[in-house]
Simulated assay, not measured.
Amino acid sequence: MARYQSILVATDGSETAGRAVDHAVSLASDADDMVYVLSVAHSRESPMSFGVETLEGIEAAVERTAAEVGEHLGEAAVSGMVRRGRPDDQILAAADEVGADMIVLGRTGSSGLADRVLGGTADRVVRRSKRPVLLIPETGAT
């Protein structure tokens, strides 16, 4: 079985993204492992999905999430990052920059129905990624 030492987990503050963070944490266990917690503020969207009103608020929310992840990682390390742009582009660019072995993200996040009909961030990441992508389904998804 493959060993993933560098994991990028994308979060948008949704419940499904929170479950993705939990899965990323469960995959990282050694002192050499690194988990990168990434949030992307899409230029068209409001930061309100995190319950905040500014980009600085998103940065603070990501830092809190990274700190919570760090508490559960044991020996592995964690780093939080916030980017602005199209989420799939930024997720893939961040994965390349940090040399992630795997990307973990929720299947459906805060964007809702439009992504279900048109194909969302998760679908675009899976199609374009050169590395394994672990998609976490919505609660109750079959």
Score class of each variant (00 low, 15 high):
A2V: 14
R3N: 12
Q5S: 15
S6N: 13
I7K: 00
L8Y: 06
L8G: 06
V9K: 08
A10I: 09
T11D: 05
T11F: 01
S14A: 11
S14I: 07
E15W: 03
T16H: 04
T16I: 12
G18T: 03
G18R: 00
A20Q: 02
V21N: 01
H23S: 11
H23Q: 15
A24Y: 03
D30V: 05
D30Y: 09
D32K: 15
M34G: 06
M34W: 02
M34D: 08
Y36W: 10
E45D: 14
S49N: 05
E53S: 15
T54I: 01
L55C: 05
E56T: 14
G57Q: 03
I58L: 02
A61M: 08
E63Y: 01
R64L: 10
T65V: 15
A66P: 10
A67R: 15
V69S: 07
G70K: 04
G74N: 07
G74L: 02
E75N: 13
A77M: 13
A77V: 07
V78G: 02
G80K: 03
G80E: 03
R84C: 11
R86A: 15
Q90I: 00
Q90T: 09
A93S: 14
D96V: 11
E97R: 12
V98M: 14
G99N: 07
A100V: 05
A100D: 04
A100N: 02
I103Q: 06
V104G: 02
V104C: 02
G106M: 05
G109M: 06
S111R: 15
A114H: 11
A114Y: 05
A114C: 08
D115I: 01
R116S: 12
V117N: 02
T121Y: 00
V126Y: 00
S129L: 10
K130H: 14
P132V: 11
L134V: 03
L135H: 07
L135R: 04
L135D: 12
L135M: 09
I136S: 05
E138N: 12
T139V: 15
T139W: 07
T139G: 06
A141Q: 10
A141D: 09
T142R: 13
